[in-house]
Design a protein around this nucleic acid. Structure first.
Lengths: 334, 334
DNA sequence: AACATAGTTGACAGCGCTGTCAAATCGTAT
DNA sequence: ATACGATTTGACAGCGCTGTCAACTATGTT
């Protein structure tokens, strides 16, 4: 049982294959009479065009590659949501690949996407293997690096200074008068590392000692992990005066563990998170955080890609800082 | 500037194109000498094979289509994560399309995936347009419907009874002795509707009146929406004795709004959620919920698809009930 | 030395569609 | 009735790869 092809439809409708192709792609170029006959034949046979053949023949794929480090994180879900909304509406297919926080897997992902002849690549992060950079640069297609600011962008770069954000969160705690301030994280991917750098910079400037609460083996951020890490710290007996969590989930977990252990937030300990996830505002106490712009990042990246694909002008190496915002709430109130 | 093709590599390496193809796909079938020459040429030219051409020529796409109603929900993020883990490891590409809770968009998504000649389709939900069903049934490829149990599965069906789960949650509240029990949701997609049906069934059996807290216009579940809906209810002055929220996010929002308004959980009001998201266990008070198996659903669906693709035997219409579990916690303790 | 066998390599055609340009058709003005 | 341009339709080749099978080479056997 063969698959139905354009020729089958053409035979049934009594027209040439190219006419069928046109009815499907630019119906206005075909007379109403033929169009109706072709449409009927398409429906009767249940014909679905073979996209691989179309891509091969036309050399346009209408596909955009997106690389994220993980799918297991709301941050990237929001970002992907925004990307999809814009790109799918514009008639593009979004091909999502995850690199699982590995630069080697990222390199493979890039190769796979180039093999698909995607028309643009949107990639979270700015740290890549040399070969990855080379492939992206040579590919002669729009590339957008997101979430961070790169010292040397490949093409377009839309993000924010993770380091500055980390520094700002820490300074907020320092200004509140705390001295024993801990940095809490489950892993140190590049963005967490940059926030950590910001933390250390702020602490150094204030002449304060670093306090680190870092999971022994890398684990992805979660409420449960926040609970665990705080519990461990408490049991070791060295509870700090304030904690900067690299993620709101961790912060929520830490707060809940505090309540369990009779430690009051913010009276006994202050906690600030990161990303301003939607529960932060309505947690009790409400959670201070650094608001980041995941949705806007995705939306803007998608829009810029569309603009680049629609204009023949090759615009290079622009950098857009979407910034962040400190949102002080009850969890760090004095 | 032309793209590099197989022929270019073949010329540089001084072999035939087919040999290059073999080096890339089954290196063992080529002598080491040639293999090295070809590898060198590939590297020198930065050759990346054109997947569209490969798919067209071989009629294997190594692509699996996945349809979810939304990307903006952890539930589906977890499910997609599991699908990816299994399928990518097996050498397949996962093509994700979202239907935005619309059966028409789902139909288009199916057409798009069939056009890509995916080798299987994994689709969340069991309600489809007649044409969707027809396309899926005629496509002669493995189809998995997930998350719900279908009265007439197209092919494989992996899910749980949403209605029974809704009934169980409601009965849990009834057994606690409550009479004024509300059902709270932001929208009524098919799964929420089924839970609602289960709620009404339980209430009817206990001869209790329905109480509905449903957003005026459909909104996706979120902590903020839970707060809003509860606040509205409280301001109208008809706060129930217990609430079954169709989602843990809504439940968390409702709980937090209670705290703000000085209503104690579970003393003044009991709340149960759905899905047992990871914060449920460590919320304060901890949140009762119905645990669902998103990860297992994705994993099993992927494994079954792989099994079906590897065996020539056409196994039809199996149904797997992954069940659910009532997790009573503090938020509904007496 | 002649032959069979396994292991390598290559020639060829074709997967299903679309870009290009030529041919046919139509309506309109002369 | 004729000529003209505009519109509609079709023929052809080719996109880049792989399945198939034939041809060749190296190895071992009698």
């Amino acid at each position: 049982m063969r698959r139905i092809t354009l020729d089958d439809v053409a035979n049934l409708a009594g027209v040439s294959p190219i006419t069928v192709s046109r009815v499907l792609r630019k119906p206005d170029a075909v007379s109403p009479g033929l169009r109706l006959r072709v449409d009927a034949a398409v429906k009767e046979l249940g014909y679905v065009p073979n996209i691989a053949a179309s891509r091969l023949a036309s050399s346009r794929t209408h596909a955009i590659g997106v690389i994220v480090p993980t799918l297991y994180n709301v941050i990237f879900a929001e970002y992907l949501f925004a990307l999809h909304e814009v790109l799918v509406a514009a008639g593009f297919q979004v091909i999502v690949v995850n690199s699982r926080y590995s630069e080697i897997e990222e390199e493979n992902a890039i190769k796979a996407l180039l093999g698909q002849r995607v028309e643009a690549i949107i990639i979270a992060g700015t740290h890549h293997t040399p070969l990855s950079r080379q492939l992206l640069a040579q590919a002669r297609l729009p590339v957008v690096e997101t979430f961070e600011l790169s010292p040397n962008p490949i093409d377009l770069n839309i993000g924010m200074s993770q380091e500055h954000a980390g520094q700002t969160a820490t300074q907020h705690l320092i200004e509140r008068g705390f001295r024993r301030i801990a940095f809490l994280t489950g892993n140190l991917d590049h963005r967490a590392q940059s926030r950590f750098d910001g933390y250390r910079l702020a602490m150094q400037e204030a002449d304060l000692p670093n306090l680190e609460i870092i999971a022994e083996r890398p684990r992805h951020s979660s409420v449960a992990l926040g609970s665990d890490l705080f519990a461990m710290t408490h049991e070791r007996g060295d509870v700090p005066e304030a904690i900067f969590c690299t993620d709101d989930n961790l912060a929520l977990g830490a707060m809940q563990e505090c309540r369990k252990r009779g430690i009051r937030v913010p009276d006994d300990i202050s906690i600030i998170g990161f990303h301003d996830l939607e529960f932060a505002a309505c947690a009790a106490p409400s959670l201070s955080s650094i608001a980041t712009r995941r949705f806007e990042t995705g939306k803007l990246a998608a829009e810029r890609v569309l603009a680049a694909l629609n204009s023949s002008v090759v615009s290079r190496a622009e950098q857009i800082d979407l910034g962040f915002a400190l949102i002080p709430r009850e969890s760090t109130a004095i």
